[in-house]
């Protein structure tokens, strides 16, 4: 092999180098584009508590799944190849299994790379997402179908993150679930317990729901 390369002249050698650099650059461009594209996080996917800003998260999370393993409620899953969430990264779907907000935050403790920040020590300070009331025309309480307050009862930050506000509209009085964004952790228990077919209150990733609260 070394015999081959000593027989070729400099022009050929440079030509081969340019060719190799060219092909590798093309692969690099494709990889870079794909990696940028896979950064899009769908609205139904919520990161575990303590997750750093999404852009940094993808550079920090090594996709090891230790957070998934240490979650006692099987809330978290690792995205599989082909899912809309970046492959191998942890997320949960609030409507399926919400975050139970463990006091010792085992998922964040398990993270070896601080993609889930150790600075989160009080689970009430978690900022996984923000519950948004989306069902003014479906919610039993606002439409007057029943005196439902399942979301309010489900909320672990009782009387602070969700309150039922007495509201008047067109001469009709009703109670409207109202989320207080500074208290809501995005655990998703309200979305899970909502009795309407499609949840009338949904947790969205924080920077989607309230961009001003995301650290950009």
């Amino acid at each position: 092999m070394s015999g081959d390369s000593s027989n070729i002249d400099r022009r050929q050698f440079l030509g081969r180098c340019v060719q190799a650099a060219g092909s590798v650059s093309i692969i690099g461009l494709l990889l870079g584009t794909y990696s940028e594209q896979s950064k899009a996080l769908p609205a139904w996917a919520i990161r575990p508590p303590g997750a750093i800003d999404e852009e940094d998260f993808l550079g920090a999370c090594v996709r090891c799944g230790l957070c998934v393993r240490d979650c006692p409620y099987d809330t978290l899953s690792l995205a599989e190849f082909g899912d809309e969430v970046a492959t191998g990264t942890p997320y949960f779907i609030a409507r399926d299994i919400p975050c139970e907000m463990c006091e010792d935050i085992p998922c964040a403790v398990a993270c070896p790379t601080d993609a889930l920040s150790k600075e989160l020590t009080d689970i009430a300070d978690a900022d996984m997402g923000l519950a948004v009331f989306t069902g003014m025309d479906t919610c039993y309480s606002t439409t007057g179908v029943a005196h439902c307050r399942a979301c309010y009862l489900a909320c672990p930050i009782k009387d602070e993150a969700i309150t039922m506000e007495r509201t008047e509209s067109n001469g009709r009085w009703y109670f409207e679930p109202t989320v207080h964004s500074e208290k809501c952790t995005g655990c998703g228990k309200c979305e899970k317990d909502c009795v309407t077919k499609e949840a009338s209150i949904k947790v969205l990733p924080r920077d989607l729901a309230r961009h001003d609260r995301a650290t950009v």
């Binding site: 950064k39 940094d56 550079g59």
Partner: peptide, 12 residues
């Protein structure tokens, strides 16, 4: 690519 996209490029 990792530098440019601040991600773990090959893991994609």
């Amino acid at each position: 690519v990792s530098v440019m996209t601040s991600s773990i490029a090959w893991e994609v």
